[in-house]
Amino acid sequence: MKKVFSIYRYNPDVDAKPYMKDYTLELEDGSDIMVLDALILLKEQDPTLSFRRSCREGVCGSDGVNMNGKNGLACITPLSHLQGEKIVLRPLPGLPVIRDLIIDMSQFYTQYEKIKPYLINDGKEQPAREHLQSIEERDKLDGLYECILCACCSTACPSFWWNPDKFIGPSGLLHAYRFLIDSRDTATDERLSELDDAFSVFRCHGIMNCVSVCPKGLNPTKAIGHIKSMLLNRAV
């Protein structure tokens, strides 16, 4: 069984501009492997091919790539899920390319930093031992804490493409909501004030690209909706 790949190549030190290069992989008939495994095999053919990866099982978030036009993690996407004669692999869209499939995620992390991704507690009501949560309080964090910061969602979001310096993006906002509803966090109001401008949250127009690509099955649009409601409740 032959599989043909068309892969985005760009080495700014050598190439004047990016180009697509074709590769062929000979696979055992009826076998199915993950896109990441295919990339590793292709790297044996061509050691200059560059991509990020670490855990190779969908927990570290380092191998987000655009496969046949859809963002996802290469390590948990089987080749059989990708239709077409050629499998087209490109870096995640919208952020600067460092080399081949490797993008510069600084803007993504800057947005993540902005939402202060850590518990803030003013210490006014110190518990005797530790901050306990009820089962219900803890349940509110489900669907939020699982985000692995792979950036598949934010780089699929048109609002983030156009304003990556001002719009927090789906991933950052998912985390923002995770801390907004944490019963142990006392900075809810300050956090909301930080978000209440025309860009940070409100650039989300509910297109839901983020939801359709998240490899962890999370729903940033829903979290963003909750943030908008919190902002509205505070305003009226």
Binding site: L195, D196, V201, F202, L231, L232, R234, A235
Partner: peptide, 10 residues
């Protein structure tokens, strides 16, 4: 036009 994001939104 609005003073804040929420103001614009409303």
């Amino acid at each position: 036009l609005g003073r804040s994001g929420v103001h614009d939104f409303i």
